[in-house]
Simulated scan of single mutants.
Amino acid sequence: MSGLLPSEGNVDAGGEGTPRVHWLDDDETEQLIGCLSCDTARDILSSLHDSPATAKELSETVDTSIQNARHHLGNLVDADLVRIAGTRYSEKGREMKVYGPTDGPLVVCVGGNEGNREDFADAISSFLE
């Protein structure tokens, strides 16, 4: 049965994307910081920067349950830090999602007034590109 379905699947490793600049008082930033407040979520994100992986592979890498890995992956996807990069098939023929980090650097800024934020974000983006 191992030869019938591709176990490697098609995975988009991604490349360098556009830098994202967030401000500490933005709603998106609150969600981002909230999901990264847990060691397990940070370990999962770090692991995905090394190599795309399934929830099962990540649970083994970071030594947690698959349910916990899926919970944190859902939060990381919602915060736009992780994306579904492709699919693989298990030995039993089940389709599994393969996760990878979203492309591009992320910067969280503190302070600044509303009028300067867009210029500041443009300057940071051009520096990181």
Rank of each mutant, 00 (worst) to 15 (best):
N75I: 08
E16M: 08
E114L: 10
N10W: 14
D25S: 01
V82T: 15
K56E: 07
V98G: 11
A13I: 11
L73I: 15
K97M: 08
G3V: 09
M96H: 10
C35M: 11
R42I: 02
T64P: 00
T64A: 11
V11M: 05
A53I: 13
R42V: 09
F127P: 00
T40H: 01
Y99Q: 12
T54S: 15
S46R: 12
L24V: 07
C38K: 13
L24A: 11
V11S: 06
R117W: 04
A13E: 08
E60L: 05
L128V: 02
G86R: 09
S2F: 01
G34T: 14
W23C: 00
L32R: 13
E95H: 00
L4R: 07
D12W: 06
L81Q: 13
Q67A: 10
A123H: 04
E118A: 08
A55S: 14
H49W: 10
S90R: 11
A121N: 02
G93K: 03
L4H: 06
L24Y: 08
A55I: 06
S65T: 15
E91W: 03
V108M: 05
A121R: 07
A13H: 10
V110R: 10
S51C: 13
Y89S: 09
L76K: 04
V77M: 04
D103K: 10
T29N: 01
M96Y: 06
G86D: 09
A123Y: 02
E91R: 10
T18G: 00
S46T: 10
N68K: 10
L5S: 02
G104I: 04
G86C: 11
L73M: 13
N113W: 07
R83V: 15
L5G: 00
H22T: 00
G93S: 03
N68L: 11
Y89Q: 09
P101Q: 12
E129A: 07
E28P: 00
A13S: 05
W23I: 00
R42G: 02
E30T: 08
C38Q: 14
L32Q: 01
V11A: 04
V82C: 13
N68H: 05
E114F: 06
D103A: 15
S65I: 04
A121S: 13
V11R: 06
